[in-house]
Design a binder for these strands. Sequence first.
DNA 1: CACCAGGCAAGCC
DNA 2: GGCTTGCATGGT
Length: 285
Amino acid sequence: MKISQQKNGILISAPEDFSLRNTFDCGQCFRFNEQEDKSFIGVAFGKPVCFSEEENGIYIDNITPDEFNEKWLKFLDFERNYKIIKEKLSVDETMKKAIEFGGGIRILRQEFSECVISFIISQQNNIPKIKKAVEGFCRLFGEKISYMGNDYYTFPRIETIKNITVSDLEPLKIGYRDKYIIDAIEKLNSGFLNCDELEKMSYKDAKERLLKVHGIGNKVADCILLFSLGKFDAFPTDTWIKKAMMELYGVDEKNIEKYSKANFGEYSGFAQQYIFYYMRWNKAK
DNA sequence: CACCAGGCAAGCC
DNA sequence: GGCTTGCATGGT
């Protein structure tokens, strides 16, 4: 993998274990969307960017080399060797197939506040509606930025939304989740939920803290731990994973936690994403 | 009209 | 502790 400056962005030559569709469409993030020309446009770190697969590598438009090194390298998890992870996980035939299918997945290190709010919205909801609600949230409270002829909205900084109320969220049509969002914003703003602090804590301790937020339960906490805090021993268990673990491994709902810990261990989060993506795209009704 | 969607809190025992 | 039920909203 080699980074070089090109046009108005940077080119990643010969990226390994990374595909745009696998990474942005595997359900871990909600604000990167495939365009007609197969590129992906998303907003992160306060600005829209465009990823495209070109013959000599992956081009990211609208970022500087400094921004790439300081933020996007970590966001894209490019410093991790996925070959080792895949090798460690390839101990059963199901996982081998899942890795073959979604081998271009990288687990994004998403911005904390956005991850918290997005996954609270995600509960008992479907992906198109989640994406629409998160987008609407940014449209209501974020900053508008024009890019390539369209308007994009940043995810608002937490200080700018600390005084919003349940009624401000009414246009989003997120039902009973509205009060959960308000509680989370309050705890993000007060420092009760602090990204730097939680990152340094163990999986268990960080989870305990997250569970104190009204609206964050076992599954949502695991998503935040995995997709924003780098706790790869998390194995988020939703309806799809329950179905997949039963069908593919014969593991009952109540034994999933025990099974993943014993068989996937410190790579549980990666295993979960390979299984989730494999299940959703092959078994989707 | 049912039933479901990347679950959760509250109320039972 | 574990198990059950109600929950907002939109889609099928």
